[in-house]
Design a protein around this nucleic acid. Structure first.
Lengths: 206, 206
DNA sequence: CGGTCATGTCAACGCATGGTGACTTATCGT
DNA sequence: ACGATAAGTCACCATGCGTTGACATGACCG
């Protein structure tokens, strides 16, 4: 029996978007950034190995082959997604005097999908995968470790930077291990923040 | 053209092990533990997704099918490997007064394959994999978080335990991101230890 | 020595993945 | 209005995975 296959969208023209909801007008640049956005979101939520090209393609509403065309290999896409994140410098944009409190607040209270920490979320998700490890290590050094080390710029800056980075990442991992949250009530979260802030600040001050 | 396939080992008898190096006498219990050891080692070095049943089988010198026979699914093997690790209680076996220094020393100077931290290495490697996440979370709570929380047993024990666990794991992650080490000379490593120890100790003392 | 059962191997299945080239279709300049 | 070309889709490939059931074989018991 012959079945008539209905293509995804037969509508066209300038009103296509109105007549046919979900229709994406043909626009390479827009599609490219849509893919990049979806990839960033996926890689922040799942590990390199768990994210499939077809998953990202489905999120965007596009064929997986198009991703390969635009970004090359999966490695290239992963790197592009990581590069498209706001880097660690946003953590260092404010005043040094209240760095500890600012960061502690973000770690404890901001949802894990906070834009500022999305790059770190991606790195933590895929740090275990050997295929992504090299990219993660390189990016982390270039966009997080080194700027932090330069920014704090006191005695033993490398040591203090490594401790800071480790603590920040560790709290993210800890939250992840708790199943996406710290599983504590508000009062305990505040206590955690109040204990964490001076520790971080102490590493900043020297 | 017919080729004669030589089986792995045609030797037999009580002297087989002597006559035929690499020969493993048939012993279910010994083979089982050999598989478990190999799995533990693999899972500590690579993520859940990167470790293949055939890899472990090759390490042991056994067919992959045998692993399925002994342990069931890959999940079951992963859980068994994790359970076979010395748990976090070894960190708490000593005196509370020098916990900070002891742990800081282990974190900074012990090789990442240290037996005491192997369980944590496995968890960190596979925390990103959705297929292993649930097992990791459950095991981590049961064998690390909860004992630690109970052991420190002061005011705000949950908060302090989470911070401690986060810091310890974070330093492990940080070392991993550095490419398997902190990339610092001995003097800096000692400085790191000397800064880390009092922070950990402070969380123990309350 | 010979049978027997546990122990281990082999070949294959079904599935999912990343990637590729040929094809279709919408868009835009003329 | 129409053809050229960019934009997107489709079918497919090679590969690797975990797992299974049928088969081989070595160690032990009588």
């Amino acid at each position: 029996m012959e079945v008539t296959v209905i293509p995804n969208h037969t509508c066209h023209g300038v009103f296509a978007a109105l007549l046919c909801p979900g229709h994406r007008p043909r626009n390479a640049a827009a599609t490219r950034t849509a893919i990049l956005d979806a990839a960033r979101e996926r890689f922040a939520a799942e590990s390199y190995d768990d994210v499939g090209m077809r998953d990202i393609a489905r999120d965007v509403g596009v064929d997986a082959a198009l991703i390969s065309r635009y970004f090359g290999s999966k490695d290239d896409l992963f790197l592009a997604a990581l590069d498209s994140c706001t880097d660690g410098s946003t953590l260092m944009s404010g005043d040094k005097a209240d760095f500890g409190l600012r960061v502690a607040n973000e770690i404890v209270f901001e949802p894990k999908t906070a834009e500022k920490l999305k790059g770190m979320a991606i790195m933590l998700r895929s740090i275990g995968s050997t295929k992504a490890a090299e990219i993660v290590q390189t990016t982390c050094s270039a966009r997080f470790f080194n700027p932090l080390e330069e920014w704090i710029s006191g005695p033993d800056a490398p040591v203090r930077a490594r401790l800071l980075a480790g603590f920040i990442m560790g709290m993210s991992v800890s939250r992840e291990l708790g199943g996406g949250g710290f599983n504590m009530d508000l009062a305990d979260c505040e206590k955690m923040r109040d204990r964490l802030a001076p520790i971080l600040q102490g590493l900043i001050d020297g």
